[in-house]
Simulated assay, not measured.
Amino acid sequence: MKYAGIVDRLARLGGAKWDVHLRARELAAQGCDIIELTIGEPDVPTPEALTDVAVDALRRGRTGYSNGPGEDNLRAALARRYSYSMATRIGPERILCFPGTQTALFAVLMGLVETGDEVLVGDPMYATYEGVIRANGATMAPVPLSPAHGFRIRAEDIAARITPRSRAILLNTPHNPTGAILSREDLLAIGELARKHDLWIISDEVYEELVFDGETFHSPLSIPELADRTVAVSSISKSHAAPGFRSGWAVGSADFAAQLLPLSETMLFGNQPFIADMTAVAVSERSEVAAGMRSRFAARAARLNARLTAESMLDVHAPKAGMFAMVNIEKTGMNGHDYALDLLETNGVAVMPGSAFGATLDGWVRVALTVDDSRFEMACDQIVAHARQHAGEPA
């Protein structure tokens, strides 16, 4: 039997990148004590106040069909939130609702690029970006990100890779996996390129509320001269510890939302009303869990850095936001994938190979900062012991 070309384009771009994580789950199911530092799962449950809203909405019968752009109350709440944070009026006509950031990205890229187009994206990148770019035949144009520049994507590096086929720049700020944050100056320079070459700017901002103390988040959506060519996507998955509710959105110009609406309606025809009610409450108030997560993740990143710097030959890149820290493991003599498998099988700690996020991280691994402090300390013990074994030292 024949399959559509999309199947070939996406082969090995899905679950195959998570083979170490899946192996860790297998070992845990067999009774092994595995410390899982692979995925970006919040370290607290969804706030009860929010789940109560969803449950109450279910009981009130908010289970019917929605409308194409999303429930009116949610779009209004998002419009108020973005108008306040961007210091400019953003109306509900500029917003489309989706089940999560991933679906929003898929729809946005499906609507803005097509076969033969190129999308410029930093390497490393979140593991699903290549798939959402390649789904309808577009090509990913990786822009290497250097630890020497804090893994921030730079306008001059983008400029060197622009071709006549370039159609969009996909940004992720704060950045997964490295925790880098783009400054306003970074965005202005990138925006000038986008204006010069008539490129879309797609900005994944799902970690916006997990910026560590002393750092500042900026969105290209807040820059007036970029507003018509910028689409920002986000969700409540990280900020409100609600990944399983799958509630996200895209914010662009009114013309963008109108043009993309038929595509959105073809995919899902709106979001779930009872989840929309919960999300409207979530985005209308400060998250009750984000501040605690920011503090804990920053402290664990600092602890990981202190321990590995003092007790091993491994190097840690200090994140400025998010749920992860990157560890350079090149001195072990292994690549990131082999290192991650060996660490899992011999020391019971699961981390993500850097290669899952792009070619530039072959000698790195990503460590999630999302287990409780005692388990995280145990994980540090095992990472140090493993590193000493590979350095020929007694563990």
Results as ranks from 00 to 15, higher is better:
I133L: 11
T101M: 07
A325P: 07
A189K: 05
P273A: 14
E215T: 06
E26W: 04
A250W: 07
T279E: 12
R294G: 11
R23I: 02
G64W: 10
L96E: 04
E377N: 14
S239I: 00
D228L: 08
A258G: 13
E48W: 00
N305H: 10
L37V: 06
P243I: 09
P99Q: 10
A227W: 14
D373K: 09
E205R: 14
P142Y: 11
R94Y: 12
T332Y: 06
E156I: 00
A291Y: 09
E285D: 03
N347W: 03
A302Q: 13
T216G: 07
R154G: 01
L58P: 08
T230L: 12
I275L: 11
S253H: 11
R23D: 13
H240K: 00
G244P: 02
E185A: 14
I383P: 12
L96D: 00
T88Y: 08
G91Y: 04
V365H: 11
R89T: 06
M267L: 15
E185G: 07
V206E: 15
A356Y: 02
R12A: 13
I39V: 04
E41W: 00
A189M: 13
A385I: 01
V121A: 11
R195F: 03
F217M: 11
V211I: 12
K196T: 03
S264V: 07
T332G: 01
R62I: 00
R75E: 02
L58D: 09
T128V: 09
L50R: 02
A87E: 05
V316Q: 00
T128R: 12
V289C: 08
Y207P: 02
N328C: 09
K331D: 05
D338M: 09
R300C: 01
A168L: 02
F297Y: 15
A127H: 04
A189R: 10
A189V: 01
R154S: 13
G214D: 13
D255R: 08
V44A: 05
A194I: 02
T115D: 13
V281I: 08
L105P: 04
K331W: 09
L96Q: 04
D342M: 04
I95M: 07
G15P: 00
A16C: 03
P220N: 14
F376M: 03
Y339C: 10
G15Q: 10
E41H: 15
A141K: 15
E208G: 09
N176D: 15
V55N: 01
M293I: 03
D157S: 08
V251D: 09
L369C: 13
G392P: 07
A135N: 14
G137Y: 11
E93S: 11
Y129R: 06
G270Q: 04
F274P: 07
H218D: 00
D186C: 12
M278K: 03
M1K: 13
A310P: 03
M326C: 12
S219E: 05
R229H: 01
A180C: 10
A340L: 13
T346D: 06
D338Y: 10
D52C: 03
L37D: 08
R75P: 00
T51P: 06
R303E: 05
G70H: 03
S234C: 10
S146H: 15
A321C: 13
